[in-house]
């Protein structure tokens, strides 16, 4: 049976209302989960005997193109069976709060700090939620789309031909 079906069946049985979507993107099964149950879903996936996603490959932030929502993306891995899945959750940009997963995966510590540093996602219960790569005095979250890389007021670099 395909991994997508196995995980969907398990998740739908245990969390009937919390899974917003499930799809196969390229080689990865991807699930969108409601933000409040993210921690429970990860805990279930880690502790379930068959799935046992014991390894957090990476965790990163994203922003939706309408700039109204932020998201966190988790890549999980079960090494013995070589199962890999991706979980996403989205929440309002004005209230970017989500429970930490450092209690399940110690490696999430710096990954969550990095996500906080660049997107301003506040991980509730994180032991040391401080900026990690940027200077402590910084007062913006630079990876958000509202901070463009180049100064948008400049006219000398405008290139209307290509619609940049």
């Amino acid at each position: 049976m395909e991994l997508l079906e196995i995980v969907s069946a398990k998740l739908n049985e245990r969390f009937p209302d919390e899974i917003e979507s499930a799809a196969l993107l390229y080689d990865y099964p991807v699930f969108t989960v409601k933000k409040d149950s993210m921690h429970d879903v990860l805990k279930f996936l880690k502790e379930d005997e068959e799935l046992n996603f014991h390894f957090l490959t990476t965790l990163c932030g994203v922003q939706t193109p309408d700039e109204k929502q932020l998201g966190v993306v988790y890549h999980l891995h079960n090494m013995p069976k070589n199962y890999r899945i991706r979980l996403k959750t989205f929440f309002d940009i004005n209230k970017p709060e989500i429970p930490t997963v450092t209690d399940l995966y110690p490696t999430a510590n710096w990954m969550e700090r990095e996500t906080y540093d660049f997107f301003g996602v506040r991980f509730k219960g994180h032991p040391n939620l401080k900026r990690i790569l940027n200077v402590d005095e910084m007062d913006i979250f630079p990876m958000r789309k509202e901070y463009p890389l180049e100064d948008q007021a400049r006219t000398d670099k405008k290139d209307d031909m290509f619609g940049r």
Partner: peptide, 20 residues
């Protein structure tokens, strides 16, 4: 349009690229 994660065995371990 797409969303892809690819990883290779780098000198230090799994080097991954998550691209949207």
């Amino acid at each position: 349009v797409g969303e892809v994660y690819h990883c290779v065995e780098g000198g230090n371990g799994e080097l991954g690229f998550y691209c949207i």
